[in-house]
Design a protein around this nucleic acid. Structure first.
Lengths: 238, 238
DNA sequence: GGCGTCTTTGACGCAACCCTGACGCGGTGC
DNA sequence: GCACCGCGTCAGGGTTGCGTCAAAGACGCC
């Protein structure tokens, strides 16, 4: 229900469908594309392995009954180099087959005929748990010429040292940095930092903007990064 | 059949079984213990949530039909603070139920009656993929100028000797070290160490941080590694 | 059943943070 | 040219949060 971790526009999830029955592939592709997945399809194991290597899918849906090789071999082939979630489809209900596939490295096993809703739900579950735990750590680093803001670690670095910020200072900085280059209205700042019932206490802003500038700007009285837009709000520029 | 990933003598995998039918619980417990799993059992949702918080299982087996609360609520209760794999058991075959449980955060869904072999295979799959990705051995040893933390062996070494830590002290240290350099909020620390229902008892933190510092810092009253960020949380620095 | 260890709880001093009010300055509009 | 409004700056005081210590309660072990 919620887009994972942050409001960044997510790149679409890439699915690799491996099945030799055209009607199943068609049904899957239609349903997946309707839900904004990006879909590749393969009809045999060899192509599947090549496609997986080339496209690096986020999740694999694999039918065990392939013309050219055993499905379990495909699983092992994938597991040799990737931990991508593998969702196995199969007509076989036998317990042994399931155990074999799962122990070879499959993540889930669905027997045909399957309900599309259930399959999609299992797919969502597989993708969800493959998401990185907490640490993204890549783009959370915002740098300017004078200081660096690490949004994940909640750290500010400047001139080789860590800068100590109070909770309110940090909160204010965070809102501004998350809107780098954009104007943030005074009301929005007040409500995000001090709570929804605040909206007019612009003196708070003045005091705390001054603190931020004093701690981060080279020349606090002539700010280059924390820009005042008179009557409107503030803007953070890198 | 194979001890998961690596030759390190593994601590046993801890399973939490939640089911109100005694015979199912018995069957599961017997089979799991025979395979060297460590097993806890709960017969209702409330005890289950408490047990999960207290014992931190590596995987949860959850029957949706509980006497005191909806199984989906148990899933949500767990997902509020942990990503532990959840394997759902249910007598319901309905597709909607499956979708609801999976989307609430379950990892797998098995309908009763189930084959024990299959269940165990699915359990192995769930535990396997929850393991940390390939890069072990990098972070299991964290060294500072004064002491060394071995996350795998659960040991702390300092000045040529092992430092004795109580379970709570260790748990707190572990959370901090796994987030080296990052700020960890008081709420997150409390919930990870004491359980999801704790979030405001910051006095616990104060007491245990003091213990850690006394045991590990050169000058406990001027800590260099366990840094307080007033009003926000704590941070471990190497 | 007694003992030791670990956890929880309370009280106290101190430092840090947040709020508040006063003042000066520059720009805008009348 | 003057008054007004919005912004930046500074310093003081109330409040909160943190570190420390000590003692009681809970738990497991022998």
């Amino acid at each position: 229900m919620v887009s994972p971790a942050g409001g960044i526009p997510q790149t679409p999830t890439r699915v690799l469908v491996i099945d030799d029955e055209p009607q199943i592939v068609r049904a899957l592709v239609i349903n997946l594309k309707a839900r904004k997945y990006e879909v590749d399809a393969a009809h045999d194991g060899a192509t599947a392995l090549k496609l997986a290597a080339a496209r690096h899918p986020d999740v694999v849906v694999l039918d065990l009954g392939l013309p050219d090789m055993d499905g379990v071999e495909v699983i092992k082939g994938l597991r040799g180099w990737t931990r991508v979630p593998i969702l196995v489809l199969s007509a076989r209900h036998s317990s042994d087959e399931k155990v074999e596939a799962l122990d070879a490295g499959a993540d889930d096993y669905v027997t045909k005929p399957f309900g599309m809703d259930e399959l999609l739900a299992r797919l969502r579950a597989a993708v969800r748990r493959a998401e990185p735990a907490g640490g993204e750590e890549d783009d959370v680093l915002v740098e300017t010429g004078e200081f660096t803001v690490d949004l994940a670690a909640k750290k500010v670095h400047r001139a080789g040292k860590d800068v100590r910020l109070t909770p309110t200072e940090w909160h204010l900085l965070e809102v501004l940095v998350r809107n780098t280059g954009r104007l943030v209205s005074q009301k929005q700042l007040l409500q995000e930092v001090w709570g929804p019932s605040y909206g007019t206490e612009t003196n708070y802003l003045r005091v705390y903007m001054a603190q931020l500038r004093r701690k981060l700007e080279a020349d606090p009285s002539h700010p280059e990064h924390f820009i005042t837009e008179p009557g409107m709000g503030y803007r953070f520029e890198r």
